[in-house]
Amino acid sequence: MDEPGIAIVTRDRFLASIEARRGQAGAVAATIAAAYGIDLPSAGRWAGGADIAFAWAGPGEWSAIADRPIARDLAGRLAGQAAVTDQSDGWHLTEVSGLRVRDTLAKMLPIDLDPAALPPGAVALTRAGHIDLRLRHLSAGVYELAVFRSLGADFAGWLEASAAEFR
């Protein structure tokens, strides 16, 4: 089958936010590497896979995105090194892909989506209109968009309207 113009799928994942304590970023990275075999990503990147991934979320901050509950495990491992909070219910996650995915996202996001500027593996913290948003470029042309749960319905409506001409 031909690749569709645009495909939109809602995802339900388990999320947790991690903020390193003052001066503990190195220790946090070592703990994560030892526990999950993943090097914590630097600014604008994510690392890991579909089962568990860590996305940069600001200086000294990361988001964990997993296919199983993760916050309690992380909080235990990172006690004294980082503040961990469960965010599994806080975000509305959408995965978008398709031939016209960048044309669709260009109507909503004010950032450069060219793969040279934002390759797979990249993370962008930005906004869509008045809606703060975190984008992960998962694999070539496949993007994960995360917005606050309360804005999910509104955001989905706008995404659908932006994609409609490419359906």
Partner: peptide, 11 residues
């Protein structure tokens, strides 16, 4: 310094 060149509406 972390995110690169961005429009003023993010700030």
């Amino acid at each position: 310094p972390h995110c690169g060149n961005r429009g003023i509406e993010e700030f």
